[in-house]
Simulated assay, not measured.
Amino acid sequence: MTTPTTAGSLRTTPEGLLWEPSRRWVRGRAGDLTVVDSRHPVLVWEPRVPVPTYAFPRDEVRQDLLRPARRPRTGSHTGSRIFYDLEADGGLLENAAWTFPAAELAGHIAFEWRSRTGRGLDHWYEEEEEIFIHPRDPYKRVDALPSSRHVQVEIAGTVVADTRRPVLIFETGLPTRYYLPREDVRLDLFNPSDHSTGCPYKGTATYWSWRGEDDVPPDILWSYPEPLPAVAAVRGLLAFYNEVVDIVVDDERQERPTTPFSKVLSVKRTPRQGAQGVAQDP
């Protein structure tokens, strides 16, 4: 096995991949079956994909469970030409794994995460903690800071929240999110939703939708009932998508940002769509 020597040394391949070794012990399971058990994973960033994935040395993967893909998803990963189906629980998980074309990663195999793409392995662990959606990016920070700023939220001219005790989430690459105490939010103006999403940094979010007749996307309000320890300060608080509501902070109206969520928010889901989110939440 060829093991990268230095963790924290970001490298670039001719194909445009970024990668670096990780010192975390990572395991991946299909149900109760352990498919990956690796102490030498590498993190890989594909071009135009905002989050990393793991790739693993072949001898730390159950290669006996892999079969050449019957219908390979060519074009779904940067330059990848070799895809594998995974034999588990008496069936095949199609295109559950693949290899990158980069020479530096030739001895590694990457896997899909079911909670992100809807296929692949469904349980992942770093050390003894289960993680969701995708690996945590070592170059991303998420800070939850209590504040005394005066925050107001308006929808279609109606003030739906007013507080002087928010918790602000500062997350690399995203606008500041304002988490507000429930008693400072007009929850009577919203209906609970069956939509939920997961985030490797914050946990699992539940949602509410605006009850008004205005042209407002669904699921614009969310909360983390049981957040991960790093952002415990937002437990039970409520936050709005800055992209589609008007937020006033210390009497200064904030500009609506454009983010990766903007396109999703511009499309209204039907009641049959989106009950369980597979993308990272905000």
Rank of each mutant, 00 (worst) to 15 (best):
N242M: 08
Y139S: 10
V151E: 00
V49W: 09
R253Y: 04
P21F: 03
G277S: 06
D137K: 06
V153H: 02
G274T: 11
G79V: 07
S147T: 06
Y224S: 01
S22D: 08
E129A: 15
L145A: 09
P282K: 13
V49Q: 11
L237N: 05
D162P: 09
S262M: 11
E243F: 12
G91C: 13
F190P: 11
Y207V: 05
G90D: 06
P138D: 03
Y139W: 12
R29V: 00
V267P: 01
H195W: 07
Y207S: 02
A103C: 02
A156V: 10
V151H: 00
T34H: 05
F170C: 06
T99M: 12
A156I: 10
L18H: 15
E226W: 09
Q254L: 15
A30H: 06
F240S: 06
E129H: 15
I133K: 08
F170V: 14
W45F: 14
P21G: 03
I109V: 15
R67H: 13
R235P: 00
Y201P: 00
T270I: 05
T74H: 15
G79A: 07
R70L: 11
G157I: 06
L174N: 10
G277E: 05
P257G: 01
E112V: 08
S22I: 02
R70A: 14
T163W: 02
W208L: 13
P135A: 06
F261M: 07
D32C: 00
T270D: 12
S115F: 07
E94S: 10
K202G: 02
